[in-house]
Design a protein around this nucleic acid. Structure first.
Lengths: 128, 128
DNA sequence: ACTATCGTTGACCTTGACGTAAAAGTCAAA
DNA sequence: TTTGACTTTTACGTCAAGGTCAACGATAGT
């Protein structure tokens, strides 16, 4: 009893549009099955979509996401390709570490904003 | 002796184009001084640009960045505005925390990719 | 005087990631 | 059988964030 998800089922779950999922298929990120013309998504497709959306949230482009998926599907066998891949992976990691630091800095900045707001609220609250 | 930075000085430092800085001025993010028509950037402008770029790296839109700058320049005095601001800040924080988690998950995933690469390299190395 | 380098404005162009609308097929419930 | 909810494809539209190009001014070096 292989479970299938319909397209709208998934759009509801993930808060995206059908256009987005069809677009991702056009872009070669996903390959749902078909019954006639209708798309049928299996659990594996669903998990892949989750990963795509995670990539999207952290700012990867469609092309980058496609590349990552490719690597998972069939990792390069040739030496030069492997070395190239590893150096690109290292680049990405550095980028992500920078991004994480940016986020942490911004989070503490938001702490300050919040504190300033609370102070202000207290002032106003006292004044009335 | 108030130091000034020229536009190209900053583009070189930050790896962006003059178009980008002029665009940011058009968008009201920065307000460099002028001598005639030429823009003169002061250290404060430079620091602001750094923060703008940090916002950009973590995926904030121009509009969001402008909003944040606004809050810093003059925090709202009215109660309702303050409460609105605080709830929006809380939203952003949640978004950033999610993003941070996404990044951490992806970083460990990249660890795995790298390891797989190394294994593969060893195989190839041994095979030849 | 000529050339380089750096600066300006203004206008249109491009790219990514979808949105939206048209026209039509499928299937279940009332 | 008609309505409603779902699905499809094709195709043009949009929006953000700049890129690119033209035409020009100021300044410095040779």
């Amino acid at each position: 009893m292989n479970k299938y998800y319909s397209i709208t089922e998934l759009t509801r779950e993930f808060g995206i549009s059908t256009r987005t999922l069809r677009f991702y298929e056009d872009e070669g990120l996903i390959h749902p099955e078909r019954r006639g013309r209708t798309r049928l998504f299996r659990p594996a497709d669903r998990r892949l979509i989750q990963e795509i959306l995670r990539g999207r949230r952290i700012g990867f482009t469609i092309a980058e996401i496609r590349e990552i998926i490719q690597v998972y599907k069939d990792p390069p066998g040739e030496l030069g390709q492997l070395q190239l891949l590893m150096s690109r992976v290292e680049e990405k990691r550095e980028e992500l570490r920078q991004k994480r630091k940016d986020i942490e800095d911004t989070l503490t900045e938001l702490d300050n904003v919040e504190e300033a707001c609370l102070t202000r609220l207290a002032e106003i609250g006292v004044g009335t």
